[in-house]
Computed example of a mutant assay.
Amino acid sequence: MRILLVEDDESLASGLKLALGRACYTVEHVGDGVAAVAALEHNAFDLAILDLGLPRLDGIDVLARVRRAGNAVPVLVLSARDAVRDRIVALDLGADDYLIKPFDVDELLARVRVLERRRAGLSVNQLRFGDLALDLAGMAVSWKNQPIDLQHREFMLLRRLVEQPNKVFTRSELEASLYGWGEGVASNAIDVYVHHVRRKTDPDLIKTVRGLGYRIGNLAT
């Protein structure tokens, strides 16, 4: 899951990036409203975490512009503005949730999981595909009811594939989900992660679609 964090407080942003990264999310950060609009216009994100008191362009204006452009990315507002009217305005403009500062990081992560579940059409924090089960809250994976040990990005790769069974993901799409801006990516990184996941589960779990990329599912190639 790729998240855009829009926060001008560098200390808070750094802490949130660390917490979200530990929860196996890929996080991109911008510090003002104009940069946020540009990032959402030119990049695909699964969630935006949006402060309201931003330099250059207020978060409410960012939200309004994004929705006018037809971008349906889920938006979780983080703000010190605690008046009921502020919450109503943000929610009516298209925000999906509103969390008031100061907040507990565990609550933020729980709200992120709620939006992740909603995006995937889930009612619980679990993704399933056949004998495979992913616990989104505990970041645990089981295969045929037995726990398996996945590395950080192996979990991220598998979660991305299971969220949309039968969808073919190109290597560049998977790299964007697993790596942030400016992170070096080896040319065979995705292939290596796929190999490791197959070895720990089943060689046929992840399908190679020749010339395109990878998918998880039972469609004929």
Rank of each mutant, 00 (worst) to 15 (best):
T208S: 09
I190T: 11
V73R: 03
L93D: 00
A110M: 05
M156I: 11
G138R: 15
L99A: 03
A48L: 04
D106K: 10
L161M: 04
V105A: 09
R81P: 03
F155R: 05
D82H: 14
V197Y: 01
R117M: 05
L99C: 04
R2N: 07
D131L: 13
P147H: 08
G70F: 13
A48V: 15
S187I: 11
H29W: 14
L5H: 02
P203V: 12
L50P: 03
N125S: 12
Y98T: 10
A189K: 02
D86G: 13
L57Q: 14
G184L: 12
A137C: 04
G33T: 06
A69Q: 13
T26S: 10
D8R: 02
R153N: 14
R87Q: 14
I49N: 01
G182S: 07
E173L: 07
G33K: 09
F45M: 00
A83P: 00
E28D: 14
E163A: 11
A13N: 04
N43W: 14
R128N: 13
A48P: 02
Q164G: 07
F103D: 02
G217Q: 04
F155N: 03
D58N: 15
A90V: 10
L161W: 05
L219W: 14
P165M: 01
K207Y: 03
R87H: 08
V62C: 06
F45A: 00
N43C: 10
A137S: 09
R87W: 10
E7C: 07
T221H: 07
L57G: 06
I206N: 00
L157M: 05
D202M: 06
N145Q: 15
G217E: 09
V27S: 04
G213I: 06
L150W: 06
Q151S: 07
I190C: 01
L76Q: 08
L161D: 02
V209E: 05
S123N: 09
Q126S: 15
I88S: 03
R128G: 12
L178K: 02
G94W: 09
D149E: 15
V66D: 02
L115Y: 01
S172H: 11
E173I: 09
T170N: 01
A72L: 15
K17I: 08
A176W: 09
V73W: 00
L40T: 02
A44P: 04
A23W: 06
D58G: 12
G15F: 15
L205I: 04
D8A: 00
G211V: 09
N166C: 13
W181Q: 02
D86H: 11
V124Q: 13
S187T: 06
D61I: 07
F129C: 01
V89C: 10
R160E: 14
L219D: 12
A38P: 10
L16R: 06
L132E: 05
I148M: 09
L115A: 03
A44R: 10
S172Y: 09
K207E: 13
G138K: 11
D92G: 11
P55D: 01
V89S: 08
M139F: 08
R159H: 08
V73Q: 00
A186V: 08
L78W: 12
R2L: 06
A80N: 13
L178A: 12
F155P: 03
L108E: 00
R81H: 14
A133G: 05
L76N: 01
E28G: 12
L91W: 08
L40G: 07
A48R: 00
D8W: 05
